[in-house]
Amino acid sequence: MISTFFETIFSSPISAVFLGIFILVLFALVVLVVVIAQFGTQLQYFATPIHDKIAGDAEHNAEQILEQARAQSRVIIATAEESAKNMLNEHKKETISFQEDQKKYLEELTSQSKEILTQQMGAITQSVETVATDFKIHITEIQASLDREEERFKQVIANESERLKESFVGVGTKTETEYHALIEETKKVLSENIEKDIKRTREVLSAYRSQQIEILNKNIVSMVEETARITLGKVLTLDEHRELIMKALQEAKQEDIFSTQKP
């Protein structure tokens, strides 16, 4: 993963240049700290005047060393900057070259694509035209077929209509004949049935009449009696009743019933 990281870092030209510069500066600072630390330790032993000279020398050496270090660091920085510039330039060149290559590649690719598309569009257009042409042809054929079918169907209808007309004429004639025959038959059957019904009705009526007359004969006296009772009971006065009673007694007298003795 780390290696991947550095590879990624170093793969970028600008980042690599800055990283180099940073490393060099860091190195110079480490050297400077070590020198200062050594110089501070030696100063403890040259506290005395004897050691002042040594300290001075050392300080001088140190300064020299520092100066050298600074000079070296400047050289390093300058070298690093130069290197970085060079790397940047190279990288820029590479980038430009890469961009140009890419541009060129894209242009070629575009050109090829255009060409392919043009070719394909031509093919498609041709196919579409072909299909459209085929479709038109097919439609035309279908239309023609429909026209033929329509014509044939019309012809069939005309033929069937003619045939049906002829059939109907025949059937009508036959039906009319049968109809008249049926009417005659129906009339005959109805007449017979009516005659039978009338005869049966007359018989029933006659039987009913005989039955009613018989009933009437049986009840005629009761009917007259009841009628007379209702009527006379309402219309006769007491004197009229007395007259009828007297008439009955006279009739009984005439019949000589009062001369009879007790049995």
């Binding site: 009772r229 006379l232 009971g233 009828l244 009955a248 009879t260 049995p263």
Partner: peptide, 25 residues
Amino acid sequence: PTISAGCQIVWNDILYDFGLNRQIK
């Protein structure tokens, strides 16, 4: 009242109908 008119006569325990019904019969 069913006699309607006339009368019935009982003489020597014998009934004689001289009512309207007898006349009708």
